[in-house]
Design a binder for these strands. Sequence first.
DNA 1: CATGAATGAGTATTCATTCAT
DNA 2: TATGAATGAATACTCATTCAT
Lengths: 192, 192, 192, 192
Amino acid sequence: MPKSQERCQEIREETRNLIIKKSVLYFARHGFAGTKISELSKNIGIAQGTIYLYFESKEDLYAEIFEISDKYTRSEKLNSFAKLPITAAMKIRMLSDYLIKSLKSDEMFSASIALYTQRLLEGETDQSFYKTLEKIIKEGQKEGSVVAGNARKLSELYWGVVYLYAVKNLYTTDYAMIRSEDLSRILLEDRK
Amino acid sequence: MPKSQERCQEIREETRNLIIKKSVLYFARHGFAGTKISELSKNIGIAQGTIYLYFESKEDLYAEIFEISDKYTRSEKLNSFAKLPITAAMKIRMLSDYLIKSLKSDEMFSASIALYTQRLLEGETDQSFYKTLEKIIKEGQKEGSVVAGNARKLSELYWGVVYLYAVKNLYTTDYAMIRSEDLSRILLEDRK
Amino acid sequence: MPKSQERCQEIREETRNLIIKKSVLYFARHGFAGTKISELSKNIGIAQGTIYLYFESKEDLYAEIFEISDKYTRSEKLNSFAKLPITAAMKIRMLSDYLIKSLKSDEMFSASIALYTQRLLEGETDQSFYKTLEKIIKEGQKEGSVVAGNARKLSELYWGVVYLYAVKNLYTTDYAMIRSEDLSRILLEDRK
Amino acid sequence: MPKSQERCQEIREETRNLIIKKSVLYFARHGFAGTKISELSKNIGIAQGTIYLYFESKEDLYAEIFEISDKYTRSEKLNSFAKLPITAAMKIRMLSDYLIKSLKSDEMFSASIALYTQRLLEGETDQSFYKTLEKIIKEGQKEGSVVAGNARKLSELYWGVVYLYAVKNLYTTDYAMIRSEDLSRILLEDRK
DNA sequence: CATGAATGAGTATTCATTCAT
DNA sequence: TATGAATGAATACTCATTCAT
């Protein structure tokens, strides 16, 4: 009984996904230059040559990886929160909850944040997600719930902290995360 | 007529320092794997071979660089602030002032922080400076000036933000830094 | 479909042996410092990188090469001759026959002798094979078949001549070897 | 009182001779490829640059060194012995005496022999001194004092042994040399 | 499709040579 | 002259990529 066309396709898809999944973590941890195909393939558990059946080159793989992390990060979540008919403070708390939960439960999420920010720092990608948060911050400042200050810088600060914990997650698996409240507090006025 | 012993010593010292100074920035920006000796030496303005007159290998140079950044970071400042007969809140404000000023004016400082934290994340160095800040935080929590929460995590958060801005400094020279108050606010209760 | 484990093992073994075989000759001819990996690999007919799939470094390869030549030279032959129930003179003639034949027919033998002696001169190896011959010489001197003189020095002289012809073999392929009798004569009294 | 022209010349001559003397030994021991200018100059006790005040290049120095060893080896002695109105056996004994004495007392002599033979093996020089000995051997064979056999090969054998002891001298300073008789015996029939 | 041995361009390191002092 | 720091071409070694099986 020969494998059906679909089964083949399926296997290909599986292997491809395996490579991507493992590579996201590997690249996030070691960076582009620090990642050797020989080590990566060992880590994935396949032969070096196999990677080249699915990706043209190391750069191609990295680009793909980055696309993934980009999507992950660019997540509709942030936009969906922004559009809800609730206070800015609520939006920020929901966002923080969502982020902390994702960082805790999903290694890929951490890796994506890490990769994305690495490229961000190198100025190689746009900064769209800063923008959305900026708007929420300005809203909150009008409400009086968000601390005073340049909205852009506050946005950067917030994302910076998220990045930090993402990176920590990659290196120390059992890392004790900050609580959602601590993250929110970066933006929100202390409630009295 | 041979060069005088002292003059030679002097020249060696100068070249060695030049290499270190430029390398701190270069390694901080590109990481170990991303740094090519050929590019580095070009950046320093010397021949490739010259580096090997002063350092055994790329790894040796990196280790030395790290020692330097370690000293820089382990700076007595933090400890000296800790010992002053002032409130914890004051200590935190002084520390923040000092850090923001240093980040702004001294590229080496940013690079050192960046390198140090990179290795910290990889768990390859001790975390002594967390400790000192932890103590100040606990003091502040007793005073009621520092926000509630696990002192260790707050300390990590604070240093994390410093790291973030250090890294930003390395990539974008004209980066608009947060203000000292924004940094302090990570730990201090909002004054009402 | 992956290559079978055995076939891979086989290929590795073959390549490894090819490298060793050619390297013995190359190092024996050019010495360690005079051997360039680029030239050696060209001589072997493989890429430079391939050598590093089998050996850690040039030094590692050289050490391995030397191990081989050591085994070749430490050959059981000498010991087996020594134990035969025949006169010392006979032993010496058999040894000489064996050596001259080996030098003539087996380039590896010449190379091994050359390498071994090079290191011997540098005092980097033991001199076990001198010892066995020394015993035979002393036997022969009692029999009256071997010339008078310090047994150790005679042994050295004998091996020195063997070395000489080994080296000559490496440089001039069609070299006219001395006859076995000429070699034996270094130790044996002229028969009248 | 300025140095006189002659004194200057003298100093130059002295330094030049020092370099040559030390280099002969160094090259003889390490070979051309194995000799590093940095090590050599350290061994001589001068700066690297100084060598280049006296010699154009490493190759130039080696060539000069070789000239010296050539002269040493090509020594008139051999020819002068050949021309004496004495038996071939006597000539061989005188030659052996002379060689053993020189090897024992003059490190430069050993080095010269070593260097000369190294190049000889590589076929890079003529073999004039073989010729002279060959003639003596043929004389001796007519006299009945020299063993039978191809004169050229016997000559090579004789010189080979001399080379061997020269090399040994270079590596082990207190080496126990063979006696002049042992050397002569390679060519001479045992006297009964 | 998968493998891993082989390749060779790229990178690290050495060493003969130069040159400012 | 003599020095030794600096140079860069030559050499050792690595690693992304290819290819025969």
